[in-house]
Amino acid sequence: MPYRFQDEITTADVAFEAWGDTREELFISCATALLRTMTAAPEQVAHEQKRVIRLKHEELDLLLFSFLQELIFHKDAHRLLLHADSVRIEQRESIFKLVATVSGEPIDAARHRLLVDVKAVTLHRFQVLFRDNQWRAVVELDV
């Protein structure tokens, strides 16, 4: 798994560290951890409905913040649990641009072994960094 839940840094919320060889892999790892926070059976979430997410930001970490926040938005607004299938990030001048293809299906309590509703991505301890030839992020979710 390209992520690890971090019990030691939060009591009431859910925190995880995620990693990837590229920025794109890191974003996908974070999306996977987010999905795993909400369901114990992410493999049961079928890739039925596809969405394309386009975002831009001057800061890479806040681009990740917005990306995860977008997945949470779809969970409430469209009742969709989503996998990140592909992510492309381009940096032009000082702006990071993201195009992500995500897919999933409506929440089904009978199949998805739901765990906890995620309210928001917090900025507490939130970080994205490149260390030891790997992209890493620490994310704390309000649940």
Partner: peptide, 27 residues
């Protein structure tokens, strides 16, 4: 949850640059 998220981002943009408030924790 979305109201709070929206304004957290708004405040991040203006807190230091527009109002000169020192940031101890982005949250």
């Amino acid at each position: 949850h979305q109201v709070a998220t929206d304004y957290l981002q708004t405040f991040l943009k203006v807190m230091t640059t527009k109002y000169g408030i020192k940031l101890y924790d982005r949250e």
